[in-house]
Design a protein around this nucleic acid. Structure first.
Lengths: 342, 342
DNA sequence: CTGAAAGCGCTTACAG
DNA sequence: CTGAAAGCGCTTACAG
């Protein structure tokens, strides 16, 4: 207690929190004392004494079904929620279905209706997300983007991956291992409504690196979009590609569905093909361990989820201002180091 | 407060902490209530109320001079120390010189003399470390190994890397990129008193993978120990190796001194050689960015330092028992993803 | 064996 | 503009 030096704790509190109602003279005196004594507030006591509580709403795609990816950020969010619970933070989670815009909108509306003090959400649907962001700004609520992101300068911060660089990195690995005079296939797993922005950037990054592939290996690149919602299309697309380009020696899958291609390669006995994909989903890990998938790039989704909550907590409780954009490391995972990333 | 159900807070406290002096009858009643109400103690309040303070002693090699590696765990330790400070933990750091056993012993003695409540140390000198470990056990102080480790079942936990697997991983990358019919050089940077145990294991892992190098590339492996404390020896050893084996196409350096080999390769205009090493030291990063070093494997030393303190805190304050052995992920770092690991 | 009181380092009304 | 009191959810002696 810095009140040993003149005034009462209440007054000291007022100057620390700039709550006015203090004579300039005594304010200055206390400020100097704080500096001189190297006073640093005890956050523990602060949190215990403050009756203030905060509610954070999280709107996230559901991980069930075949989109297991989304269980990972959720796990991180749950962990962080547990840790900040004693600091008077409660966390409410709203899950939506990735294939229905209305589901996203419903959950966002529900989250907003609860009037939270902070929001974490995944703006997968661009148009709608811009609308909601506007609403949230108008309500004066701080918010954080998780995983996806839209160009929005009002967000407190945006967690994500440098998608261009991640395509670059994939190409670097491919280029390192592939033999000369061969072809590479880029597979974009698409949906009826098109390809997600993310994947296009990864493809772009990949292509731009391959162009300058060192050691002049003379590599050709072709790229295919396969609608993964239609059962037979991926296999058929791949068969077509191999017929047209028998010298394909490497395949790059731009999202988490490399396991689909791995199944194909096994069925066609072509495990010699270099296969690179994204994300540590269960099926991907299985094929990585078998050697059918060579590399998986991972963006630490648990960590992103965890950080999104912690950042919001620090902002609410301690007025912390994070950098506007926070990229996760792009981990390179192989059969040999996967054991340490689980 | 669970005392709303019968007794006083003091009594509840006694049953929670098994402090005896409670009639069995009321103890059982309270225990049931705790379960039923889903009571979970507020750690914040607990820490604030408890007058107990703990001191942790950390004994670590000095990072100054040419062993910049050791600054990294230290950074993690400092970060953790800051975070647990409000939880009544103070951290004292004792640095020793890696090239003098006596320095290690002096610092260990000093650390022990302070009678800390927990100890983190790096048992680089095996013989002496066993002796100190015995002393610490006798004093009943919990301790944690950081980075290196010795076979000691009394340690609370040992943080480190699976050195065998890390050699394995290096070989996997080398094998993926190297052309057929070539030779690989393993360089062990040694000291006059021999090679550190660590490096031998890495070499062993590397060799065992290369043996089964896929696609039958017919690779030969030679290994060289170069005394890095003598200025000219590394370059001379490398010249000798290249004279004997002109088809060397890849070099694996078993510790953090890959930058030394990078300098050599640049001076001999042989940047075409694949170079794989360990640790994100400043010079290593520089050569990685230039492309002279192809891959660096990193064991998250900051994270290890950070975790060593947090683990000890959780053990002291909350009786947490960690797993006996904790391996860090082995990150694969390239020019393309280094930016995200700093 | 159990309760009542004081206190951890802060914040929050409420007097004056 | 400033102080004194009460309280956050616990722990720690101290009575009885």
């Amino acid at each position: 207690l810095a009140d040993l030096a003149g005034v009462s704790a209440g007054t000291v509190d007022r100057v620390i929190h700039h709550r006015g109602e203090v004579k300039t003279e005594t304010r200055v005196r206390i400020e100097e004392l704080i500096k001189k004594s190297g006073y640093t507030p005890n956050l523990i006591a602060k949190s215990l004494a403050s009756r203030k509580t905060w509610r954070i709403a999280v709107v996230l795609p559901e991980g069930a079904g075949n989109n297991l990816y989304w269980d990972m950020p959720l796990a991180g969010i749950r962990k962080a929620a547990g840790e900040v619970h004693d600091f008077n933070i409660t966390t409410d989670i709203y899950l939506f279905h990735l294939d229905r815009v209305e589901s996203f909108s419903e959950q966002m509306v529900a989250a907003l209706a609860a009037k939270p003090d902070g929001i974490v959400f995944t703006p997968v649907f661009r148009h709608e997300s811009f609308g909601f962001a506007r609403e949230i700004v108008a309500a004066g609520i701080p918010y954080v983007f998780l995983d996806s992101r839209i160009e929005d300068t009002h967000a407190l911060t945006r967690f994500g991956q440098d998608t261009l660089k991640s395509g670059y990195l994939a190409a670097r690995l491919m280029c390192f291992g592939i033999g000369p005079d061969s072809a590479i296939l880029i597979l974009n797993p698409a949906r009826p409504d098109g390809i997600i922005h993310h994947l296009i950037r990864r493809e772009k990054g990949f292509k731009s690196f391959i162009k300058g592939c060192n050691r002049n290996k003379s590599i050709r690149v072709l790229s295919v979009n396969a609608d993964i919602t239609r059962p037979d299309e991926p296999f058929r697309s791949l068969d077509d590609a191999f017929t047209g380009y028998p010298d394909i020696a490497g395949i790059f899958v731009t999202n988490s569905r490399a396991s689909l291609v791995a199944e194909y390669l096994e069925s066609r006995k072509r495990q010699d093909i270099i296969l690179i994909g994204y994300d540590l989903t269960k099926p991907n890990i299985r094929f990585l361990k078998k050697g059918t998938i060579d590399f998986l790039l991972s963006q630490k989704p648990e960590d992103q989820g965890y950080q999104s909550i912690i950042t919001l907590y620090r902002h609410l409780a301690h007025k912390y201002s994070p950098p506007k954009l926070q990229y996760s490391p792009i981990d390179i995972i192989t059969k040999e180091n996967i054991a340490f990333y689980r």
